[in-house]
Write a protein that binds this DNA or RNA. Structure first.
Lengths: 132, 132
DNA sequence: CAGTATCCGTGTTGATACTG
DNA sequence: CAGTATCAACACGGATACTG
């Protein structure tokens, strides 16, 4: 089945971990799981509520598997029908998630300044292309 | 010239910033610039020393432009020949970079545990595929 | 030196259909 | 419900050639 993990090799190992944690869906999953444990579909909807489009099943699966393999997420599959699988953070994952959340909170707080900077940047560029 | 920034739209703005900061080269650039200011080519080599392959000129340019537009990086182009351009962090960028570095340091410190978790994960999977 | 412009391979992503 | 399998699209990243 091969989740294309060793595919992108040639990088030092900590960069690999860093990329898993900071990956598009990795960050959101970690932050969500900081609140509480989630079931698969539930987590999918929760992540979707972050404003962008919803994460596909495939990507969520892949993200969760990667994080589980890295020992950041715990997968608890209950042998019932219909299936029920709960995902939660390990102690290690909680540490990572807190760092990531700090970054997200910072982003949230500084968003105004960033957007102001962007307007300023675009402004001068715009002016230049008119006068050139 | 269009750096494909508004291309990936439909995301809430803070996710955009978060993705810039946590992007493949964004993290490394921010961390490097935490030490001191760098010239373009210098920065390119510095980032390359992180173990992976070197960043292409194109990607470095793109990364720096995005970070500059977000107000995180300051670009100082001196009007000399040959050209000399120095990049450094703004106050805003320094805050972001510190968060990112904290994450990188955490990754470094916990790397052993992550790799141990990976071996354990691969172990059981291996065993299962043999006994199935 | 510090970019820009262009082309192009491929990895990542997502839609869809299917299974236990 | 919680996935897996397969396929197609496209954005990303890199190589190369060129400019001021």
């Amino acid at each position: 089945m091969k989740v294309s993990n060793e595919a992108r090799d040639g990088l030092c190992p900590q960069r690999l971990v860093l990329e898993h944690v900071t990956s598009r869906w990795g960050t959101l999953v970690l932050i969500e799981l900081l609140d509480r444990s989630y079931r698969f579909g539930e987590l999918r909807r929760a992540v979707g509520r972050w404003g962008g489009r919803e994460v596909s099943e495939k990507m969520l699966t892949q993200t969760l598997q990667t994080l589980e393999r890295d020992g950041l997420v715990d997968r608890d599959a209950k042998p019932v029908i219909p299936p029920r699988v709960d995902y939660s953070l390990t102690d290690l994952g909680r540490e990572a998630a807190e760092q990531v959340r700090a970054l997200a909170v910072w982003t949230q707080n500084r968003l105004e300044q960033v957007e102001k900077a962007r307007r300023a940047y675009d402004e001068v560029r715009e002016t230049r292309s008119r006068t050139s």
